[in-house]
Design a protein around this nucleic acid. Structure first.
Lengths: 187, 187
DNA sequence: GTCTATACGACGATAGAC
DNA sequence: GTCTATCGTCGTATAGAC
């Protein structure tokens, strides 16, 4: 097969960047072509399902990065608090200190298609489950653990909204710093 | 002048509803016409500046409702805690228990035009200022009060994101219930 | 696998009749 | 003030050359 001028990884990178900051409908194929370096028609060769398939694969790819990289320290060695703090550092880098948006926000308004929507929800559930697991390990009962997990995720997402509107990212920094306590992790 | 078939208030209602749940770019003029009951060309008679003007007026209108109605109890009678709890009840109704989105989210992705963007930021600042004032009245110093205000707003916005993605509004309910404590209001 | 060229509908926006 | 009719542009998507 012929060599690909733009690797899958490069495509995902450009698509993720664009979708994150513009959302689904506002990102036109022209924008996507400019961001990835491929022509519109070439994009349809790589993604026969069109923009909706691009969106679905981006959600899947980012979701895999979330569980495989960002949340990975949780199942590693070290004290629970150290592990959660390591996740915090990865989140801070992932959102570039609060300057970048989250696909949970940009794809939950409008309609990125059924596949992307379903994958988005799965990703959010995986995230909440991972956080709830931390809360349980810290002694919380199941309903309380789930509530703490949802609220911790909400504090991060909300801080990203505040940062985007006001230009002030300090709320995001605080949300990350509070993460261990929000999940009830003992010092 | 000829009577208006659709009042300004009705227009704002339909536009707000649509923009809140679809965002700026995803809401087409066709959608807007269907939501308001006016033809596209009639909309241009009412809003010569087109969709961007509609967005700006919606932000302005909702912002006025925020300071004039939702946050109004803050400058009314009663204990500080009672007043903040009253705001919580109004917020709960405004977001319909967490089922509706906030313009701070739907308009901060994509580009609703310079006017709407500026008004959006003003609205967020007014909200944060009002919350910060509560925190100061509760004894917090200025930087601490501002931080608490931003974080309280973030917890609400984030809960709306979580609710939209997972379909679970309990995080929103908790965020509202926590509001007085989040601002440091004494019992 | 990527390109040029193009189809075709929907988009935002305008002109002019009533 | 609202309508019908229409403009030009840009949207997604496809066909076929290289």
């Amino acid at each position: 097969m012929a060599p690909r001028l733009v690797s899958y990884e490069q495509l995902m990178e450009g698509l993720t960047e664009l979708f994150r900051e513009r959302g689904f409908e506002a990102a036109s194929l022209g924008d996507i072509a400019a961001a990835t370096g491929l022509r519109r028609s070439s994009l349809y060769h790589r993604f026969p399902g069109g923009k909706q398939q691009m969106a679905a694969e981006v959600v899947s790819h980012v979701g895999a990065g979330l569980t495989g990289t960002v949340l990975a320290p949780l199942s590693g060695p070290g004290s629970l608090r150290d592990r959660v703090e390591a996740v915090g550092r990865l989140l801070e880098r992932f959102y570039e200190g609060g300057a970048k948006s989250c696909l949970l926000e940009s794809f939950s308004l409008g309609d990125p298609g059924p596949d992307a929507s379903a994958l988005l929800r799965e990703s959010a559930d995986a995230w909440i489950d991972a956080f709830a697991d931390v809360a349980r390990q810290s002694g919380a009962r199941r309903p309380e653990a789930r509530a703490r997990a949802q609220d911790a995720l909400a504090s991060i997402e909300g801080a990203l909204v505040v940062a985007r509107v006001t230009g002030d990212t300090t709320s995001f920094t605080r949300a990350i710093r509070r993460l261990p306590d929000a999940l009830g992790v003992p010092a």
